[in-house]
Design a protein around this nucleic acid. Structure first.
Lengths: 204, 204
DNA sequence: CCAATTACCAACTGATTGGTCGGTTTATTT
DNA sequence: AAATAAACCGACCAATCAGTTGGTAATTGG
């Protein structure tokens, strides 16, 4: 029974390192040996815990990635009033994380979408499901914002959500090169401008 | 002298097929044999014309990709009056191309950026240079739009350009899955809303 | 304390890849 | 027509990779 803990601990270590390397080098460009070398583990250990490289990836997406995206981009918005403020805040936080050090999980997600597009429909489904959760939450929050008087009633919540997600994915793609700090500043500035429009009456 | 034409023709065929497969399957996931098989050519032919796979890719980026992005996203805007209208038109056209059939080169560009990020700085530079050309052109056109009275003088042209590029890259990433037609519609709708703001006075 | 289960090791396999090389065919020049 | 060069062929090499297998070390329950 206690061994179950060790099993989980080892699997977690593998998943965590796997996500890190998959993010840095891409899934197809990262060999299982790369991951194992970093952990000082052997092939046998890997295939004892996971059926295949793909099975390993799926477990990472559904366990690690989903949770991280959720806690970073969904939870901070959920049920809050003044949606436009909390949405821009959550995105700004995500971009700041990205700028300072390392793993911005929203970006990991969009990287994976790009990498697996047209190659692995099953993986794509898991990834798009995470996007969907974010999207639905944005829409719900925006709609609630309408009844609470924060959002213009004429705004198309679905379209706004799409636009927000798009611009976030795009700015993260651009931030990999160039001056991330400046890019973030410019981006947030325009996002807030855009939100002003939605907060107004009878324009959107 | 005449043989030079044959050389160029063969190289063009290789580059064209190469770009198509690199776009569909990714660079690292496409073997040289994949390309040669499609062209009924041999390894020898490939290495007669190109030094390496990487050299091949660079030639594709600098010859094919650059020109295509330029003619699709830069040229239609260049020197035109009423910048906001022509910009949204050019993006709408690009998305329509993407939706209907095949190669949307702006998206090829952003796919490559994602794939080579952190792996090949040299390739990244070539790719970001193309983005830069687009960005500079957007900024120039927006600035000209200010003096011509189409764009609000208070608008931050650089920030607007960044925001436009970001959202385009993002929506294309999303369009790979889901309903591309609807996504395009929603996106363009919001882009035009955003542009209304910039056309107004003293807000942006 | 011992047997059984869990966790892990590391050599190996078969397939794929980028790249090489000696040779053949096709076109051009003289 | 002969000689030269350009264009292409395809077998081969070394490296890499996902996955297998037969074993060993550590843990645990009886």
């Amino acid at each position: 029974m206690e061994s179950n803990l060790k099993r989980m601990a080892t699997m977690q270590r593998m998943q965590s390192t796997g996500l890190e390397l998959f993010y840095q080098q891409g899934y197809y460009n990262t060999s299982i040996d790369d991951i194992l070398k970093k952990l000082s583990l052997s092939k046998g250990a890997f295939y004892y815990h996971f059926q295949s490289k793909e099975d390993f990836l799926i477990s990472i997406i559904q366990n690690l990635l989903f949770q991280k995206v959720y806690s970073m981009l969904v939870e901070p918005i959920e049920g809050q009033e003044d949606p436009l403020t909390v949405i821009s805040k959550s995105i700004e936080d995500a971009l700041e994380t990205a700028e300072h050090n390392a793993l911005d999980f929203g970006f990991v997600l969009s990287n994976f979408i790009t990498e697996f597009n047209g190659k692995n429909p099953q993986i794509m489904k898991y990834l798009m499901d995470i996007i969907k959760v974010w999207e639905v939450n944005l829409i719900t929050t925006l709609q609630k914002g309408k009844t609470d008087g924060y959002v213009d009633r004429h705004a198309d919540s679905e379209a706004v959500a799409t636009y927000v997600i798009s611009s976030y994915i795009g700015i993260r793609t651009l931030m990999v090169e160039g001056n991330p700090r400046m890019l973030r500043y410019k981006y947030i500035q325009q996002l807030k401008n855009y939100f002003k429009l939605i907060a107004q009456k009878a324009i959107a």
